[in-house]
């Protein structure tokens, strides 16, 4: 049996924006193991949301898949008909978006929004659907679900609304849950409770998750594996601990060093400059212009993935045997050292 629930191979997606082509994804490959959480991290415009939308087949009209393949449970999704995709969306795979308010229908009672997904299974009758929806609301931590079933979205707080969205996503018992910044719009204490909920659901329901976030603290909490994206490419991927404790790509290191550490007083280090303009993506390592240690080859040729462990890969010329040894930023070195001692 194939243990990967999702396999993306060399996926390229471009957008046509006022006459120009913007290359949002430029050959992205990744795989998600059954029952695990893969986090896609990167800054805005790096291509993480485009990747998730391509999986669900909900790219905007001006987008075009230029090549590659997406396999879900062994079935190819690129080129699948809308009908085939509809059979999967919401049933086999579901998505949770950043903003729970716009994901809910404001004039439909929340319970109904959950039970209508349950009733996609034609054999389930209305009373049974209601019973299951109430149970789901309880499972995602909504107090008094039976009484809340008939309320409208505006009667709930942001965190509770996101729980309803999660209940809707879970209603058809999907195998894959795609979460696009699911806690970004919420307060930290609400976020903490939702992340606990994701962990519980993953264990109890044997869910696989593709988790998109720019917040490395959140990623540290939920991810089994991490793929670091930048300018439409994956620059590094590995197990969560490999990315956090032995980051190898200069961008991953710079990104980690730019995050303030809530557990220490040290100042983070900003990354100078801005991400590249994707209408004219750089030919070499896209991070080269912002990397003070970049070599000539970084500007000319995109590096291959160098294997650091059976599960850890990074695309950086600095890992080539002939390259001079590259140093981690001091801030990051001290931070990792401090954590090792604990």
């Amino acid at each position: 049996m194939n243990e990967n629930i999702l396999e993306i191979n060399d996926l390229s997606v471009s957008f046509s924006v006022s006459g120009a082509r913007v290359n949002a994804l430029r050959g992205v490959s990744l795989s998600l193991r059954h029952g695990e959480t893969l986090a896609l991290v990167g800054e805005s415009g790096s291509g993480k949301s485009v990747t998730s939308r391509a999986v669900l087949g909900i790219l905007p009209k001006n987008a075009r898949v230029d090549g590659g393949s997406i396999k879900f449970c062994g079935n190819e999704l690129i080129g699948a008909t809308e009908k085939e995709l509809c059979a999967l969306r919401g049933r086999q795979m579901a998505m949770i978006f950043q903003d729970p308010t716009s994901a809910l229908d404001p004039i439909v009672r929340v319970g109904r929004q959950i039970s209508e997904v349950i009733r996609l299974d034609k054999s389930v009758g209305a009373p049974e659907a209601r019973r299951r929806a109430v149970a789901l609301m309880g499972e995602v931590g909504i107090p008094d679900p039976d009484e809340r079933y008939d309320r409208y979205p505006f009667e709930f707080s942001g965190g509770m609304r996101q729980r309803i969205v999660i209940a809707i996503a879970l209603a058809a018992s999907p195998r894959l849950l795609i979460c696009d910044e699911p806690t970004t719009a919420l307060d930290v204490s609400v976020q903490a409770r939702l992340l606990d909920l994701f962990e519980k659901l993953k264990k109890e329901r044997d869910l696989s998750m593709l988790f998109i976030s720019h917040d490395l603290g959140v990623v540290a909490r939920v991810a089994d594996s991490i793929a670091v994206m930048y300018a439409g490419k994956i620059l590094e991927y590995g197990r969560s601990e490999e990315i956090f404790y032995t980051p190898a790509h200069p961008y991953t290191r710079a990104l980690l060093a730019s995050v303030p550490d809530p557990d220490g007083d040290e100042r983070p280090r900003a990354i100078e400059g801005a991400p590249p303009d994707m209408r004219h993506p750089p030919v070499g390592d896209p991070f080269a212009v912002r990397n003070p240690d970049a070599m000539l080859v970084d500007y000319e040729l995109f590096p291959p993935f160098f294997k650091l462990s059976p599960t850890h890969f990074a695309a950086s010329w600095s890992l080539h045997p002939c390259a001079p040894p590259s140093e981690m930023p001091d801030v990051l070195k001290r931070r990792i050292e401090k954590r090792r001692k604990r």
Partner: peptide, 23 residues
């Protein structure tokens, strides 16, 4: 205390061992 305990730390081992307080 509750607010501080809810801030995620970019460190997987520390995050796993953490306890969240609810106020």
């Amino acid at each position: 205390r509750a607010l501080l305990s809810a801030v995620p730390i970019p460190d997987p081992r520390a995050e796993r061992e953490r306890r969240h307080f609810i106020y």
